[in-house]
């Protein structure tokens, strides 16, 4: 099933299918390791619901839902 990263629930994981968004945001996501094929695990949301914290390539990354929306994921089975 395909889903953008911002719609992930805590505990979900999946594989990055594609990344959209304008230049700087996209490049930043790439530089931080969010490239097609990378596995992402949704760890938690901040107390106010946004940003979110994910594990990618073995470290913790935080990003806003607005930016997570640029990341299209293939959801893994629970």
């Amino acid at each position: 099933m395909e889903k953008t990263l911002d719609l992930f629930a805590v505990g979900n994981s999946g594989i990055v299918k594609s990344v959209s968004g304008e230049g700087q945001i996209k490049r930043r996501l790439f530089d931080m390791g969010i490239t097609p094929g990378a596995e992402i695990y949704m760890r938690k949301a901040a107390p106010l619901g946004d940003p979110i914290e994910v594990t990618v390539r073995g470290y913790e990354l935080t990003l806003r839902k607005a930016e997570a929306k640029c990341v299209v994921m293939e959801v893994k089975g629970q």
């Binding site: 931080m32 913790e60 935080t62 990003l63 607005a66």
Partner: peptide, 9 residues
């Protein structure tokens, strides 16, 4: 501006 940041251990 965007907010994409590492959370160090």
């Amino acid at each position: 501006p965007p907010f994409i940041m590492e959370l160090p251990a």
